[in-house]
Design a binder for these strands. Sequence first.
DNA 1: CTATTTTACGCAAACGTTTGTGTAAAATTC
DNA 2: GAATTTTACACAAACGTTTGCGTAAAATAG
Lengths: 344, 344
Amino acid sequence: MSRNNLPTIKEIAKRLNVSASTVSRALHDHPSIGLVTTMRVHKVAKELGYEANKMAIYFKERKTYTIGVIIPDLSEPFFSAALTGVEDSAEASNYNVIIGQSLDNFEREKKIVENMKDHRVDGVLVSLTKETSTYDHFDSLKKYNIPVVFFDRVPSRKDINYVACNLVSGMLQAITKLVNMGHTRIGLINGPAKLAATLQRLEIYIRCLKENSLPVDQDIIVSTTLGKADNLKAINKLISLEEPPTAVIVFNDYVLLDCIAAVKTAGLVVNKDISFISFANLPIWEYMDSVPLASIEQFAYKQSSMAAGFLFELINNAAKPNATELPLLQHIIDSEMIDYTPAK
Amino acid sequence: MSRNNLPTIKEIAKRLNVSASTVSRALHDHPSIGLVTTMRVHKVAKELGYEANKMAIYFKERKTYTIGVIIPDLSEPFFSAALTGVEDSAEASNYNVIIGQSLDNFEREKKIVENMKDHRVDGVLVSLTKETSTYDHFDSLKKYNIPVVFFDRVPSRKDINYVACNLVSGMLQAITKLVNMGHTRIGLINGPAKLAATLQRLEIYIRCLKENSLPVDQDIIVSTTLGKADNLKAINKLISLEEPPTAVIVFNDYVLLDCIAAVKTAGLVVNKDISFISFANLPIWEYMDSVPLASIEQFAYKQSSMAAGFLFELINNAAKPNATELPLLQHIIDSEMIDYTPAK
DNA sequence: CTATTTTACGCAAACGTTTGTGTAAAATTC
DNA sequence: GAATTTTACACAAACGTTTGCGTAAAATAG
């Protein structure tokens, strides 16, 4: 009962008293099989409702037509959008997507990689954990000829395939906008020091200030570990300064939500007493009453689908008989400032 | 170059001049293999970095240790939470999850099912498309011994395995709450007629009104196709009535967002001039200034992880030699009203 | 009518593993 | 020391498909 009794090539062969190879070829309309035999095979195949067992073929091909995606957390719209990008891209190439959430936990990430290796995925897409600083677990995939492409949260290494987002363009637009609006005291609420994104934001922040001939004041540069309490602490520190910033660049939208709440609690009015710029993760600003002046879009979908494209390139290249090592596939997408300033 | 040269059992066998079967048994410490041979095999296996090719084993076992999840749209927090539930549950059973988004499109749903069948997933979890009203594509999975468990958006049929959410409990709590607050005119903005959830909400709405001895007034029952324009039309119709409802049950949080915007535009104040109850999809109410009085939680994670549990039961049962047909696995989770009333 | 080509198919190996059965040699029994 | 049991391994089949090679029979050529 439990045994599956799906029709196989052998079954068809037996019924027609021909060999399995003949059936296989007939089903593919191979010219070396006679017309009558071919037709009879097709007929029986149809009667039996035969469908090739793809797993058998994949096994023989040493392929699974499956790629793995490792992302920190699906509950973040950024990553669910990214996953959709991967899925769309995979669908176009007739690939399946298996998913693993690292939950920003390094050990989980390692385990997921291991698991994907066991399942012999044809390739892996990764957006790293906050904690990840070694990459041996990814390097080990090379042994299995499983290509890896990173996106958004990429390793600080040069010998990898990746798609990332360049924050410079968006932040420059944003800070320039603030300056044009008259802001001269622009603060920064940054993330945890361990994150590459944190260092990046800081560097670009300083650079953008300089480009606008503004001084860098360490007093208005604070950071948070991204927890709610810490977020509140950070913003409260800024607004309780003797000379608080009139605008703040905030690490991301989640932090900003807490900032806005704290600012309101303090009796200040967003976009009047203090303005914000954030990084676009949340799609709901249009429904909020207090919004950032602008948000820096990092194009999750675009990044991930492009990364998937890279991955398929690598996979297809490796499948070629004359497979020569492909040059590293790397691309950086410009971020863009999305203006939320209410139309007057 | 492209050919993978991973060590296999055969390779080990060749090196030790023993048969592949001996190696296989030795690796599993089978008692019928001598101690010295077993040790030598282990040693060589370690040297070569041998790891069993799971795909080969899975192929032989006719299993993939992969389940498929079909959900409408990952960008809805409800479904991304559901997916996480599935993933957690699958991880515990050492299963992989491949994902397909139907985008509420019936044809896509069919295609995804087909694809999952091709990949011979061991089981499928589904939350249906808005459009789905025939289920042949799922029935066809029976032929392949692929069990199906539905969750949340389930077919209107009795002969299926499913986990769903009972709206009665939550809605009854909600309407009772409204009544206790003094509301006697409670409207309903419902969804598209095709959806089971729509009919369900209507029935329960009427039932709850009656239980609270309130009249049912067709004037304050409207519906929307869930598009923004239509959402606005629905709420505007209600608030422009001669005698508008003082409270409205809204189909879901997305619709509610538009309603709140419209109400504000009309110069009304939420939770003063008009109050809302919605269905909990969005996790961001705590940051909004205008919120529903309460939201009816449908426990995406709980539903999906339980559905996954059912699926594994079915899978494991089918794997047993004495596999007898399992009774239908069905469970209904009570919804719960989540109170958002600001603490005074 | 023989020699060559073409047609149409079968055989067997391969992918990597597991497992039932067979069988020498070694160990045990009486 | 012959009969029996145990030990320790090899062989081969199986999962479902594809594909290179070999080869009868049929068709064509000369």
